[in-house]
């Protein structure tokens, strides 16, 4: 018990005194995860838009596949990207393995299906007739996209946040493609593991607190968004 209390107070001290090493890890985590969720957002949302306005054979099957297969196991994403980025792999010449860029690629692979799935269902809740109405007023595809984005902004926002929540708290892919290099690719989750095996429980707990805080905040905001949209439409 005293280990926990001791570690906890040390952890709080690290956080409150803005310990550089601790904050480097936190900032890197945010950079990587924000960038990958933004890239996933751009890919996922535009794909979702085209999926929801274009008709093609097999669309229904594809949509149900997207809706059910939203989550790819992080280690699978990690393995896939590792194999691709190996020095002697297909994309080896870019020398991306064990860099933050590799982590962004892997996390993008993880977050895109999640964001795509939520965005598709958001756009699909937008009535077909509404699209006809906008076209009937002279809208082109860009107009349509912007208006749908605006009308569904809460769901889209929650899609990106769900993506961010997933990537900032995943460990498998980051560890595999980033290599957990101190000061370079060590993020909150992998740092927690490393510090635990080094016996630095105070640091591990500090990182744990941050992670917990982030995921709790995201969940809180998502719940809030859901409640607001229920109020508006219900």
């Amino acid at each position: 018990m005293d280990v926990i209390i001791e570690s906890l107070s040390k952890a709080l001290k690290l956080l409150l005194t803005f310990d550089k090493e601790t904050y480097d890890v936190i900032i890197l985590s945010f950079k990587v995860s924000i960038l990958s969720s933004l890239i996933s957002g751009i890919i996922g949302i535009s794909l979702a838009f085209f999926l929801s306005i274009k008709d093609f054979p097999g669309k229904k099957i594809l949509l149900s596949f997207i809706n059910t297969g939203m989550a790819m196991p992080p280690v699978i994403a990690g393995l896939l990207i590792t194999i691709l980025l190996w020095r002697n792999g297909i994309l080896g010449s870019f020398e991306l393995l064990y860099t933050p860029y590799a982590m962004i690629i892997a996390q993008t692979l993880l977050a895109t299906p999640i964001i795509l799935g939520i965005s598709v269902s958001a756009f699909q809740s937008f009535p077909d007739k509404f699209i006809l109405q906008l076209l009937g007023l002279g809208a082109n595809k860009v107009h349509l996209f912007l208006i749908m984005l605006k009308e569904c902004k809460l769901s889209i926002l929650s899609a990106i946040m769900a993506g961010f929540g997933t990537v900032i708290s995943e460990v498998g892919a980051s560890l595999m493609v980033g290599g957990n290099i101190k000061g370079y690719t060590r993020v909150l989750t992998t740092a927690t593991i490393t510090e635990t095996s080094k016996g630095n429980f105070d640091l591990a707990i500090a990182y744990g607190i941050i992670l917990l805080f982030i995921t709790l905040t995201i969940n809180l905001i998502l719940t809030k968004i859901q409640q607001t949209s229920v109020k508006r439409h219900g």
């Binding site: 190996w86 020095r87 002697n88 064990y98 290599g179 957990n180 101190k182 690719t185």
Partner: peptide, 21 residues
Amino acid sequence: YFVKTIAVGSGQAMALGKRGE
């Protein structure tokens, strides 16, 4: 130089070496 330290077991380290990674 920038050194990327990948911490693994000896066996896996040699496996990485065998792949030129």
